[in-house]
Nucleic acid binder design. Sequence first.
DNA 1: ATAAGAAGCGACCAGCGGTCGATATACGGA
DNA 2: TCCGTATATCGACCGCTGGTCGCTTCTTAT
Lengths: 201, 201
Amino acid sequence: MPKGIILTPEQQAERREEIVGIALRLIEENGFKKTSMREIAALANMGKSSLYDFFKTKDEIAVYAVEKQIKETTQEARRIVADESSPEQCLRKIMLNHLGVPKQYRTVLMWLNTESDYLEEEYRNRLQAIRYAYQDVVQSVIENGVALGVFRKTDAALASRLLINSMLSIVYTSRPSTSPEKMLDETMNIILRGIINHGGA
Amino acid sequence: MPKGIILTPEQQAERREEIVGIALRLIEENGFKKTSMREIAALANMGKSSLYDFFKTKDEIAVYAVEKQIKETTQEARRIVADESSPEQCLRKIMLNHLGVPKQYRTVLMWLNTESDYLEEEYRNRLQAIRYAYQDVVQSVIENGVALGVFRKTDAALASRLLINSMLSIVYTSRPSTSPEKMLDETMNIILRGIINHGGA
DNA sequence: ATAAGAAGCGACCAGCGGTCGATATACGGA
DNA sequence: TCCGTATATCGACCGCTGGTCGCTTCTTAT
């Protein structure tokens, strides 16, 4: 890219995606802290300063990546909810969809989970919004199940957080006891049998 | 402490504890990244260089703090296991004990959970050892419950990770839906009803 | 009196995230 | 055709970080 040419919005977006891709790769390999803007810039074939024309801060790269990915995941979850009437199957499908998030997002997702309280307000708000949007979908399924009598009465907010966090920390673990799909399946079994009404009050 | 006096081992240990206490406070308030060794040193009334006589690196302060705390928690868990024969009550008591970990450890525990893969090998190994030791206690309770027929057959390693991670991410959350004790109680209800044998195979 | 050694710290280092002004190029209007 | 303006790019720089090293100061044993 010579100096004077003006980039179309599409080209701008493409470059952003390229940067995010490189950043995710590096972060997965070396962790967030040890991944430097200089390194990202070098691999993206641009000066470090140019990076800052696409992202205001290093944090924003991570926030942007996660934001986009979770929004997609949430959209797909909404589609699943619309298509599947059984709350149990619905939850299973949503979590299976969640499992489909590429593994390069693992580190950055966990990092955000830890660090989000200490980010700039703008990023905190953006992250909170997408997290809540996703959680709301799961929570609504659980509440629906409770209303239908399929699930016992439970704290739906807590249960949905439990479910989502289990995905993050159990299935994304670096030391799996078996295949991700089987771990997910057993995780769902554990949580569902605690939610499903076995005929008690 | 004037310059030439030699510290007894007790005094050394005391100073270490003082440093850890200050560090935990700062980390809880500002996050790990934004807590600097200079700041810790200033509050501990010593030159930054002197900090390095007590801890080799900044990471080590966090590792040491967590190591000590989890070791204590694990010891107490072992005591609980020895005293309580009902696997269900045992798990509940262990998790209630876990809940007793002071809240200042929250940030540093989550930080380690995220970052541990990218630490120096020594720290990685130390963390892995204490994590496994704790997990093993929980896992043995579950396995015992399965053997007794109180719990259904399940992946005990997965279930114990699920339990421990739920503590970390649900109960320590900054946005609780109710009191920690009630959240813990409901979390245990959810997980246990998925573990307890309801008379099926 | 002095040598040995502990405790403490000031000055320094490379590397970091982030800023800014200079530069090179493209393009619309005269 | 040429020029002014908008754009894209980057080198040089800043304050700060985690970490190192060697000097100083003091205690203690001889």
